[in-house]
Design a protein around this nucleic acid. Sequence first.
DNA 1: CTTGTGCCCTGACCGC
DNA 2: TGCGGTCAGGGCACAA
Length: 276
Amino acid sequence: MPELPEVETICRSLRTAIVGKMIKDVIVNHEKPLRGIDTSVFRQHQIGKKVVSIDRRGKQLLVNMSGKMVLIIHLKMSGTLTVAEAWEQPQKHTHCIWKFSDGSQLFFRDPRRFGYVILSDSSSLNERPEINSLGIEPLPILDTAVLHEAAVRTKRPIKAVLMDQRVVTGIGNIYADEICHEAGIDPMTPAETLTYAQLGKICRSTPIILRAAIDAGGTTIRDYKSTDGRQGKYALKLKVYGKQDCGSCRSRLHTSKINGRTTYYCPKCQKPSGRQ
DNA sequence: CTTGTGCCCTGACCGC
DNA sequence: TGCGGTCAGGGCACAA
């Protein structure tokens, strides 16, 4: 469900909510998100540990704990993290619960079970495939040279390259569409046909969109919520994703499929040439 | 090597 | 009310 702006929003609110807290207990209701780590090992390595810091890598959260352990959390399509009071009961599909010594708790809920919560040693974190396969971060700036390097040797649509986590990490279906619109470029354009200047335009558009989305607390289409239950407000600012008419020129939008994902674009604002 | 297609899952929504 | 089909902020395994 969440892309970079939503994960960044969750990361920030988690920091204020749980950093410094001591883990008193860990409850595992479903082992699939643990990805093969034994439930008792998962619990024993965390109970008694303190949450030291929280980072984000692309769409993943890294919860650093004392004892050189780290949780790698990916929410995929339907995952949520919620900070709750001691008396609150988890909803259905809450697969993991962390109970802190002050009574507060953290719920990991994921109806579709695509997400994961992987426990790793801090020392081997960077060798893990979930981390070392990731491309560059698009914030604070997206390096045009890196996008160019990836773009010149593929006929894939530019949107597919933007969503390729091995090239750039954090951009998903909503923001890829919004970025292509902001840049005035047709998302179907074969990447290798774009000029360096056009790729530069995309790279400058990317942080503009992502920063605005973070400022709005992310995008809530149906069920995304931050850890405090608040919805993101960037849905109000979307120009193309999920829309019928272009947010800039009001033209009727076109849709297509790229990488099997529905793609929205404006035939007037977004030309294959990138010119308007 | 690259690229496209299922598939993992549940739930919401729509038309009949 | 129910039932089937479609779709969903992601990404992996596999085939061509």
